[in-house]
Amino acid sequence: CSISMNIHEIRDGFGTIKKVIQARDPIRTASILHPHSLHNFQILDSCCLARSILRFYLDKVFRHCETGSLYINRKISGIANSFLSIEKKFRVCQDENMCNCGEEAINKYHQIIRNYEQMDVTLAAMKALGELDILLNWLEAY
């Protein structure tokens, strides 16, 4: 399942709001995506994990990231719509049975959900958004 994702366009958008978003995440000692484990993830299952994480951001994260700044809201909208555009391509792979989920991908995804649900929803959403560069680094290697 090879997909063109145009990561640098998303990275540019995120780059303009990264400092502000990460500054709103006071918890240093907890991570939702946890970089190390994402990077050491097995290549085989990465299609399923990538799609699941994209859906996680669409379903749970972006909607709780409303800020008082119109500029930041517009940038978040751009990122969210880019995620949707990529997720739709993954959906096609899934429909053609090229994006099946192994046990490891499922476990990893559930770990991410547990990390997320241990925190207050707005704090967790802002932390997940602040960890976008971790996800983009990993998707870029996908």
Binding site: R28, T29, A30, S31, H34, P35, H36
Partner: peptide
């Protein structure tokens, strides 16, 4: 004089 510490994000 100063003292510096660092943390791997996500660890305690």
């Amino acid at each position: 004089i100063y003292s510096v510490k660092y943390l791997v994000y996500g660890t305690t």
